[in-house]
Design a protein around this nucleic acid. Structure first.
Lengths: 212, 212
DNA sequence: TTCTGACCAAAATTCATTTTTAGTCATTTG
DNA sequence: CAAATGACTAAAAATGAATTTTGGTCAGAA
């Protein structure tokens, strides 16, 4: 194999495309721009990816994979659903770059309606939806949460998350990661009834009867 | 005064415009169409409304007014926040025509991005937001709900409502009015914790779920 | 006086022309 | 000689001049 000055050109290309996507969005990420950013001839891109869509697809697959890895490693079957949820959410919010790429694409979809982006984001959302749905199902079977349609519950969770982390920022001071977490988990945990009327708020050392 | 065969042309025009708006949206509602539907010369419209925007504004003002009336008459200060919330939501959901106009305009905004529609819907949302915010504030002062940012809470409520009543239908069987009500109020009341763990669920016999 | 619809300027739409971009391939390079 | 390249091409997108549609007016009919 050619092993001398051979830097991994494929990785270089993916990296460059990802940066461009995050900064300029899908439409403005032309193959010429990617080749320049990667410091590679345009033809080289086509030795690895047959089309622009395929390159884009690879990046979305990577992104989905990374998100899933972050979440999965924070889910421990012996812990309560809510502890897992809080941790998983925390992990996702912390993962800056992934998050920003998704936000950029969402913006582009809204203002340009780029079909490839719509498709990609739908696919991503479906993966997330399916994952949450299964977790909700498990939590129900364990009795951690009350009985309700897991599909609808998963759907509500995603929307609530987007509302807090993205939509709110459109017209207000963005919430910090901590605030998003706090709002998200406490709403799902307690609803909006006064503290003390039901399960315990985070203050106090009282432990919920869960594993561990 | 002229009281013979004088039908209220202004009302005729508003009615026609409202119908057209609900059926065809803002862009397709031309002044010619409105005049034909109202059975009135086009010039007549301009004796009541200086511009198309003004006619549209009048309809939106009417709509806001009607919605507000429905809600206000269902809010009784002596009742709990949740009882009021449930009733108010019920009222809004029942008010079909208003609802459909808003849905039509929302669709148009999404696919055409019509600026006048964006503006109108933003204004409507702000009115609703302000109203809910005040109610939340009152409920907090009464101790009906726990302490949290009223602006953010109001924002979340609207989004949650839209998620249930509109967004969900995009890819699934629409929820019935009853289902929307049930999902909305129970989430805010109890979160998603198991029944019996907190406030009173509607099922009479409190059966503890799978004990572990 | 009240109402109307032909009329006009401005906005939107169409479509032929130009520009940009995804994808190819003959040539170069290590 | 296999891997990399960038000038090249066909197709898609941007542009803008020509044409149609629409908001708004007003002289005259009812």
């Amino acid at each position: 194999m050619t092993e001398r000055k051979t830097i991994d050109r494929k990785a270089l290309i993916v990296e460059a495309a990802r940066k461009s996507l995050t900064m300029f969005g899908y439409k403005a990420t032309t193959m010429d721009v990617v080749s320049k950013l990667a410091g590679v001839g345009k033809g080289t891109i086509y030795t690895f990816f047959a089309t622009k869509e395929e390159l884009f697809g690879e990046i979305m697959r990577q992104l989905t994979q990374e998100m899933k890895a972050i979440v999965v490693e924070r889910i421990v079957d012996s812990r309560s659903f809510f502890d897992n949820l809080t941790d998983a959410l925390h992990g996702v919010l912390q993962f800056r770059e992934t998050h920003e790429l998704v936000i950029k694409l969402t913006q582009e979809l809204r203002e340009l309606g780029t079909p490839a982006v719509r498709e990609a984001l739908t696919e991503l959302e479906n993966a997330v939806l399916l994952f949450i749905e299964k977790e909700v199902q498990k939590a129900q079977d364990k009795g951690d949460i009350r009985r309700m349609d897991p599909k609808l519950t998963a759907f509500m969770m995603i929307r609530m998350y987007v509302t807090l982390a993205i939509d709110w920022s459109a017209q207000h001071q963005p919430l910090t990661r901590e605030e998003v977490e706090e709002q998200f988990t406490s709403l799902f945990r307690y609803g909006i009834c006064p503290a003390g009327m039901q399960g315990e708020p985070d203050t106090g050392a009282g432990a919920v009867p869960s594993g561990s």
